[in-house]
Amino acid sequence: MYGIINVAIENYVLNNYGENTWENVKSRYGTDIDFLLTEQPYNEAVFYKLAALLAEETGITVDEALFNFGEHIMKTTREKYSGVMESRGSNLKEYLINLPNFHNRIMLIYPNLSPPEFGISNVEDNSICVHYMYKQKGIRSFVLGYLSGLIFIFKEKATAKWLKTIESGQPQEVFKISW
């Protein structure tokens, strides 16, 4: 994971809970992280620990924090990297169909990136299934937030829901987006 995620998390907390909450989360984190370095790779543990600390600090659940992080990361990406968003498609369906290839291209720019793997299935006129393969458990809420952020960005009247986990040697979450 690269620092853009941390920048988005910082922006989310500042905008929704204020500077005091953000300073408390950072101080409780216990390690100095420069959240302005978008080009620096970070371990995924940073992401989960920030979600847990925010949950403790504000009384929301860790799943709510992860969902909100996912949703806000898409908004931040659109604001700061609009070209990246536009290169993936002009609507939600195109974007989702192009999603599996995106991280492969980003790895050319960020060679230390260890990205998640996406897959697409059941492409229909009014729905699509997104498969998310990951190493870290507990990512479902983040991906739902990510998909919700995409729906918002593309101004679609759509819903995203979690369908199932497939046990096939590598953990995989399946989400259905319908419009």
Results as ranks from 00 to 15, higher is better:
residue 125 D to N: 11
residue 11 N to T: 15
residue 95 Y to E: 08
residue 2 Y to Q: 11
residue 120 I to T: 15
residue 125 D to I: 07
residue 133 M to T: 08
residue 109 I to R: 05
residue 170 Q to R: 01
residue 105 R to M: 12
residue 30 G to D: 02
residue 174 V to H: 03
residue 167 E to K: 01
residue 110 Y to V: 10
residue 70 G to V: 03
residue 74 M to Q: 13
residue 70 G to I: 00
residue 114 S to M: 09
residue 7 V to E: 13
residue 73 I to P: 12
residue 122 N to S: 11
residue 39 E to A: 02
residue 58 T to P: 07
residue 91 N to A: 05
residue 137 K to Y: 09
residue 43 N to H: 06
residue 60 I to N: 11
residue 35 F to W: 10
residue 42 Y to T: 07
residue 101 N to V: 09
residue 38 T to S: 08
residue 150 L to P: 01
residue 98 N to V: 02
residue 49 K to Y: 02
residue 55 A to I: 01
residue 16 N to E: 06
residue 55 A to N: 07
residue 111 P to H: 04
residue 46 V to N: 12
residue 118 F to R: 01
residue 87 S to T: 02
residue 171 P to M: 04
residue 54 L to D: 02
residue 80 K to C: 15
residue 103 H to M: 14
residue 87 S to C: 11
residue 39 E to I: 01
residue 46 V to F: 03
residue 59 G to R: 07
residue 93 K to I: 03
residue 76 T to I: 14
residue 45 A to T: 09
residue 40 Q to K: 15
residue 35 F to P: 03
residue 138 G to E: 12
residue 102 F to C: 06
residue 170 Q to S: 07
residue 63 D to E: 10
residue 146 Y to L: 10
residue 17 Y to L: 04
residue 15 N to P: 05
residue 111 P to R: 12
residue 86 E to K: 02
residue 98 N to D: 14
residue 165 T to D: 11
residue 11 N to E: 12
residue 80 K to Q: 14
residue 42 Y to H: 09
residue 172 Q to N: 03
residue 12 Y to Q: 07
residue 27 S to E: 11
residue 36 L to W: 06
residue 152 F to R: 00
residue 4 I to E: 09
residue 169 G to P: 04
residue 149 G to V: 05
residue 49 K to E: 15
residue 141 S to H: 11
residue 94 E to F: 15
residue 26 K to V: 09
residue 32 D to L: 02
residue 58 T to I: 09
residue 92 L to N: 04
residue 47 F to L: 08
residue 117 E to V: 09
residue 150 L to F: 00
residue 111 P to Y: 06
residue 154 F to H: 00
residue 98 N to S: 14
residue 55 A to Y: 05
residue 2 Y to V: 06
residue 49 K to M: 04
residue 43 N to Q: 13
residue 166 I to R: 00
residue 145 G to K: 01
residue 54 L to W: 06
residue 61 T to H: 02
residue 89 G to F: 05
residue 58 T to Q: 14
residue 174 V to D: 07
residue 47 F to Y: 09
residue 4 I to W: 15
residue 143 V to R: 00
residue 161 K to I: 08
residue 1 M to I: 10
residue 96 L to T: 04
residue 47 F to Q: 13
residue 116 P to A: 14
residue 141 S to M: 04
